[in-house]
Design a protein around this nucleic acid. Structure first.
Lengths: 202, 202
DNA sequence: GTCTATATGCTGATAGAC
DNA sequence: GTCTATCAGCATATAGAC
């Protein structure tokens, strides 16, 4: 195990604080409306200092996304350690987890079609690695669930995967939360139900 | 019928051209990335002229949304004129229509959580009127479908309504379109299927 | 109402001293 | 690496001549 100097630990802590702030602001206002000035004001450092750690606003967003993806990967690993877990249950658990993160105000929201950000993200090696790794794990569950007959085989795995990812930024969740009529657990169960069982009567 | 002067017609045509450009740019880049300069460059007028018609960028977005909502209302009216249309079929037809508009690149995309825009929209009388009118019509179909047993009664009507509205800005559609593996009609049928029948096997 | 020219503020990003 | 001070550019919105 490599020794880590005290100085390096302080730097790491500062970077963590930056990513914390970025993550919260991204969840709150989204990428376009988040400004670097807000980030530095939140962390309590000078803007030039931030740019020593991260070279652009896009890289800030990528760092926040990487951290969320790694949390997701950790959650998936936890699930996979359970023996006898059915693939469909794994998929539902992940969908539930993304909604919990969203309700906690910890899910960064990136514009679906921002060109500058998309370009930066697809060119970001760590981000792409985490995203593809997660997709691989979910893809295995999807294939297994389809083989087990618990997931509809008429849908291409890709469509299932995208549909699950979309639950992480579903505006319906925000609307229901804002209405104040339902508890968090209730919202999650209803959205899980619409996602897996659909709107139509069985 | 009121007589309309030639001058007024020209002004109306110009406003239509402005809303055309706004609608396209909103669909293409979204509200935050759309600039008023692009709009006026697209229409071929001076910026000050645009601000004689619309007093702010938010009002431009509202005008585009009003036009889309009125197109939706016209579509609903068309459907309601058909005798014997089942409520569930009406809801599916509307969902299909929103996806077609989206695939045609004609669906304005507004940020879900932009504060300045949201405030302007909820304070915009015409926009709110059209939105509530449409919600009323869809709400009737939802109630009728639940009464007829074709729509799950375990879901509050509000949740169904929001879920349908969310199909109009579903990122899954854009991802599938970008992948290039599926035709437009195929994409729509798959997403309709996930929406109404769910992901799980029946 | 339309135009040219401009006001005003804020953005992401840097220079250079310490 | 951190800071203060600042840059250059672009955003929305407006003044004032015609």
């Amino acid at each position: 195990m490599a020794r880590v100097s005290f100085r390096a630990q302080v730097l790491q802590a500062r970077e963590d604080a930056i990513v914390d702030a970025v993550n919260r602001l991204l969840a709150e206002k989204g990428f376009d409306l988040m400004t670097v000035d807000e980030v530095v004001a939140d962390v309590g450092i000078a803007k030039a200092s931030l740019y020593k750690h991260f070279t652009s606003k896009e890289e800030l967003a990528a760092a926040a996304m990487v951290r969320v993806l790694e949390r997701a990967l950790a959650f998936v690993a936890e699930l996979q350690a359970k023996p006898g877990l059915k693939p469909l249950e794994g998929l539902k658990a992940v969908a539930r987890w993304t909604m919990q993160v969203q309700l906690a105000g910890e899910m960064p929201s990136l514009p679906a079609q921002n060109s500058s950000l998309r370009a930066a993200l697809v060119g970001h090696k760590v981000y792409m690695d985490r995203l593809l790794t997660l997709s691989d794990h979910l893809g295995e569950w999807i294939a297994a669930a389809q083989a087990a007959g618990t997931l509809r085989t008429s849908l291409p795995p890709e469509v299932v995967l995208y549909t699950l990812y979309a639950r992480a930024c579903d505006p319906v969740l925000g609307l229901l939360k804002m209405s104040g009529q339902y508890g968090h657990e209730q919202i999650i169960e209803m959205l899980l139900s619409t996602c897996f069982d659909g709107l139509a009567a069985g």
